[in-house]
Design a protein around this nucleic acid. Structure first.
Lengths: 350, 350
DNA sequence: CCGTCTTCTGCACACGTGTGCATTCACATC
DNA sequence: GATGTGAATGCACACGTGTGCAGAAGACGG
């Protein structure tokens, strides 16, 4: 049925060893036989069995990628970048989504372990203590993207955006526009990204001498609905804020939507800043001011790190260390000066 | 280093055959030895080598998924559904993105072939004739989602949305609202989806006795920018349309955005209908009227089809045939009655 | 003509797992 | 006690590929 090197060997009248060498371009084979075998392989439609090869070679040329859910545009973009870069280096990608359920996350790692992937990239997971053990037992390099983890493992490195600085930039932007009452809508509970972004929020406040007010921090979920609920909670305050920094763009879009429904105009009556710069951030109305994460770069860099740890890359393994990348502020239409009543028109940057 | 069944066998004082049987729960092994071996395996941190197993079993419990690019939210959602369903049946997923380059598409299939995946799902590809040969040579079931293909292969089936009927529904909706000058913005050139949707557009027109006008069909790209360009081309006509049906939601969002910039109000002065119902369709302003594809269902069904073709599912293989699913019209705020000047408020359905 | 070196090829084993068949052992039955 | 029966286990091979080592054949110098 399926053609193996033994089949080719039989036709060519040589041993399977010679075929193997010929196809891998070994100089130990007579040039004429080599080309004869190669064209024979092409005719017979031979395709090497990656499994058998990996079994003896000890590497699979495969990376495992664990995500929460692909429908998050941020994650989709990272996975795309990972796949592109992996392909470039001759690696392929096994995908596992966990839906943020720890049970499925463990099952995913176990599966990748069985498949003997050469490295693993985990995106946006809050790595649980149990899960952490599984990762270490894996015995292959692991790179975490925007994932918090209590302690470093021997083979585990991380690449994260500077959440604190991003939170600072966003809040500072609002303060600089003249807003003195700025709120923060959080992400999913107990997420370390969230805590860091809030630290940046606090830092900006104290820097300009504004006291932190607990009621100005309301919970969100990281999804659109969370932003909508947060909006009404904020507007019910005695002194509603005039500026809001949101955990992420989805949350900010929820606020935009709720504001539209309630007839509040953005940015004249409320300035909103998000985080992530997902592709849609520039398509909503008004376009969203946000902190851009260098998403593609992070995916690209994660692959490079894994390959360096495997020893694939020519670079030294020793240069590998945890990476913190900086987000940057993208000013669009959803934020404006305090009390600014002029109509937005044509003022769309980026 | 890595623990194999031979290592366990050595410790347990049995042969590797017994270990193999014990771990697979064979009744041929003494119950006491079986449990002893099983707990031993757990202690030693044994993880079966999927490659060695596949090599002898002849199946990998792996599906290959080929997509154009994950950053398309429609595709991301399908892949998510595929991964979920595959996981449910104990299968894992190898991902390959082609960026719509035929060269990479072929490389992807070749890679999946080498990895000996048990089945392949291809999404949103316009399967080229060359590529088609590779798919057939694969020797495993192939299911195409929303992909056109000149001729059927022996193992190839497809599952597509009824593009023609969808185009009909969208156009008919606009006509029913009183618009008598309705335009169509196409997708990427030579895409069969596009041609079918346009057929539906024409069908609706002739049904109500309106003559087809070639200048009302303008080219798009399937991306936001294409919609923006199409908008200005439409507005430059002597008789600009009052209703526009767009190849997909991204295109429609481009029109929305361009309309906003030029100060045209939606839907009072222009009604817009998209196609796909991507998650963001309901978040833009105004929320987009569109044709919803049962995205998750399509992904789910594709996996079921592949498994049935493999013979995995208990169902008969013979029931497998090409599937055409129906989209349904979702009316939101971007479309309104002709000449309707009332302010949109609270009228958000869905 | 013999010894040595080069060039090429095949044998045999390895990777980790599953399984048909033979073997061993205990026990029951005649 | 011989024989049959059943349970439990080991041997050996298979899957498809890569590679160290030995061996064959030819070239070449002495």
């Amino acid at each position: 049925m399926r053609v193996s090197i033994k089949d080719i060997a039989k036709v060519a009248g040589v041993s399977h060893s010679t075929v193997s060498r010929a196809l891998s371009g070994s100089p130990l084979v007579n040039a004429e036989t080599k080309s004869r075998i190669q064209s024979l392989a092409r005719e017979m439609g031979y395709s090497p069995d990656a499994q058998a090869r990996s079994l003896v070679m000890g590497r699979t040329l495969t990376l495992g990628v664990v995500v929460t859910r692909l429908t998050d545009p941020f994650i989709a973009e990272i996975v795309q970048a990972i796949e592109d870069t992996a392909h470039e280096y001759g690696y392929s990608v096994v995908l596992a989504s966990s839906s943020a359920e720890s049970e499925r996350e463990i099952a995913a790692v176990e599966m990748l372990h069985s498949k003997r992937v050469d490295g693993v990239i985990v995106t946006s997971s809050r790595v649980g203590a149990l899960y952490q053990q599984y990762l270490d037992r894996l015995g292959v390099p692991v790179v975490l993207i925007n994932s918090h983890r209590e302690e470093q493992g021997p083979y585990t490195f991380s690449i994260t955006v500077d959440n604190r600085h991003g939170g600072y930039l966003a809040t500072r932007h609002l303060l600089d526009l003249g807003h003195d009452c700025v709120a923060y809508v959080t992400g999913p509970a107990n997420h370390s990204d969230d805590l860091e972004r809030m630290k940046g929020y606090c830092q900006a406040l104290t820097e300009v001498g504004i006291e932190f007010q607990p009621e100005l921090v309301v919970p969100g979920t990281g999804r659109v609905e969370g932003g909508e609920i947060a909006f009404s909670r904020l507007m019910d305050l005695k002194h509603p804020p005039t500026g809001v920094f949101c955990y992420n763009d989805m949350t900010a879009i929820g606020l935009l939507r709720a504001a539209r429904v309630s007839g509040l105009s953005i940015p004249e009556e409320l300035s909103i800043v998000g985080f992530d710069d997902i592709p849609f951030a520039s398509y909503v109305n008004p376009p969203l001011t946000t902190i851009a994460q260098p998403i593609s770069q992070m995916g690209w860099q994660a692959v490079k790190m894994v390959l360096a740890l495997i020893g694939e890359s020519s670079e030294e393994t020793r240069w590998v260390s945890n990476v913190i990348v900086q987000g940057r502020l993208i000013v669009r239409g959803s934020s404006g000066a305090r009390g600014d009543k002029k109509i937005l028109s044509g003022g769309i940057s980026s």
